[in-house]
């Protein structure tokens, strides 16, 4: 049973950066913008987050630096795709290249340094409950934050008027514009929220997960976050399931190896990706009338004055 507890703890930690980045991207895509540059924003968030925490000695300041860095980079993307109506796929990929380069330049100054990782919650009594205590009451603050973020995004999208407007922009920008909503401004804010989340997700890695900075440490997690959004068919609730499922498959295949299950490790590494494809097909198939993607996703909108 202790092994189960340990596995769950690892899964939660491994899934959290994916969940945070994917939540941000979900909002961006719900507003109708496809930003493929998550990986680039994450790695810059990691570099700036670590730098901030290292210079200030504070995890919170580090997290803020990561958020701001991600947001600034997403602003570049917003200027390109919303301000100048440039293709979103190409801009997102260019953003990734730029982000990887920038993170290397920013991070060069503190490679090899280490910081104290973010503290874990500890409530005497509660945290000490066997099996569930540490899972429920002994996590690092980012894990609680990520879940709060999902709930907030869900509430915003489905229970508030601005959320409705945001979704309207993603589904039909022409109608939203005709109704008098500032489509481009709303989309810019959505892109910036996505950037902030990606930056925070990136900062999570050096602040809590592996407390040091090395170039390239995001190792493709931004791409997985993108996949998760589609996997969740743009629903915040499903995002949580998807992120934890993906984290679970990753961790469990490591455990299976440790237990000596003799399947080639490449096949086990490929499993999460194949699973995503299969689940996506099943979800899409079950739903009559095609996918639930925001109808205007990835399309350029120039307001007709």
């Amino acid at each position: 049973m202790e092994l189960v507890e340990a596995i769950i703890l690892s899964v939660l930690a491994a899934s959290t950066p994916l969940l945070i980045a994917a939540t941000g991207e979900l909002v961006t895509e719900r507003a109708g913008v496809l930003n493929l540059g998550v990986e680039g924003m994450m790695i810059v968030g990691a570099a700036c987050g670590f730098g901030g925490a290292w210079l200030s000695g504070s995890t919170i300041i580090g997290a803020l630096c990561g958020i701001i860095a991600g947001m600034l980079l997403s602003l570049v993307f917003a200027m390109m795709t919303l301000g100048l109506a440039v293709n979103q796929v190409a801009s997102g990929l260019a953003l990734t290249i730029l982000g990887i380069g920038l993170s290397g330049l920013i991070g060069a100054g503190f490679v090899g340094e280490r910081i104290t990782p973010a503290p874990h919650l500890h409530i005497p009594g509660l945290t000490d409950i066997p099996l569930i205590g540490r899972i429920l009451f002994g996590e690092d603050p980012f894990i609680y934050l990520s879940l709060a973020l999902v709930v907030a995004v869900w509430g915003f999208l489905y229970r508030t008027r601005p959320g409705l407007v945001l979704r309207a922009c993603g589904d039909n920008h022409v109608s939203a514009h005709a109704l008098g909503y500032p489509v481009l401004r709303i989309r810019t804010l959505a892109v910036m929220f996505g950037g902030a989340c990606a930056g925070l997700a990136g900062a999570y890695l050096p602040l809590a997960y592996t407390p040091f900075f090395i170039p390239g440490m995001t190792a493709g997690r931004g791409w997985i976050a993108l996949a998760l959004v589609v996997f969740a068919s743009w629903l915040p609730g499903r995002l949580v399931i998807g992120a934890y499922l993906f984290g679970a498959v990753t961790i469990l295949q490591l455990h299976a190896q440790g237990a000596g299950v003799g399947i080639p490790s490449q096949f086990m590494s490929a499993l999460p990706y194949l699973a995503t494809v299969i689940v996506l097909v099943l979800i899409s198939r079950a739903r009559t009338g095609g996918s639930t993607a925001p109808a205007a996703l990835g399309t350029v909108f120039v307001p007709d004055r």
Binding site: A227, V230, T276, V277, L280, V281, S284, R285, G290, A293
Partner: peptide, 9 residues
């Protein structure tokens, strides 16, 4: 066939 997003797959 299934309407699954080709970007992701």
């Amino acid at each position: 066939r299934f309407g699954a997003s080709e970007i992701l797959t």
